[in-house]
């Protein structure tokens, strides 16, 4: 397994992380190491082992259908760089 620069660049873009061109090769090598470690795990035969979904013995907790939260727009907007009339204001997105 070996990651080329184009793949590393694509992964970075998907994660919205800006990576300078000169770092791509080094990051590719680091990701390679991680991936080969994960591949190594594949050597263990797990065909009889059900997937582990949690480290604790518990079932999915559920909530009742009652309104218990919200109604604090000023807090929700508190960290926003810009807001107006109760809206978040973000750079123009056009599709």
């Amino acid at each position: 397994m070996s990651l080329d620069k184009a793949t590393v660049s694509r992964i970075a873009r998907l994660a919205r992380i800006r990576v300078p061109d000169e770092d791509l090769e080094r990051l590719g090598g680091e990701l390679d190491n991680i991936l080969s470690w994960v591949e190594q795990l594949g050597e263990v035969d797990t065909s009889d082992v059900p997937p582990m979904t949690s480290v604790v013995e518990m079932r999915l907790p559920k909530r009742e259908d009652t309104v218990t939260d919200g109604a604090y727009p000023e807090k929700v907007l508190g960290n926003a760089p810009e807001s107006e009339a109760g809206f978040f204001v973000v750079p123009k997105v056009v599709e």
Binding site: T66, D69, G70, A71, P73, G86, F88
Partner: peptide, 21 residues
């Protein structure tokens, strides 16, 4: 009445960001 994973309300037409947890 409430959202899928939070206790905020779902009613249509509320003032912006008033039904947000």
């Amino acid at each position: 009445d409430a959202k899928l994973f939070s206790g905020a309300a779902t009613a249509f037409g509320a003032e912006p960001n008033t039904q947000v947890s």
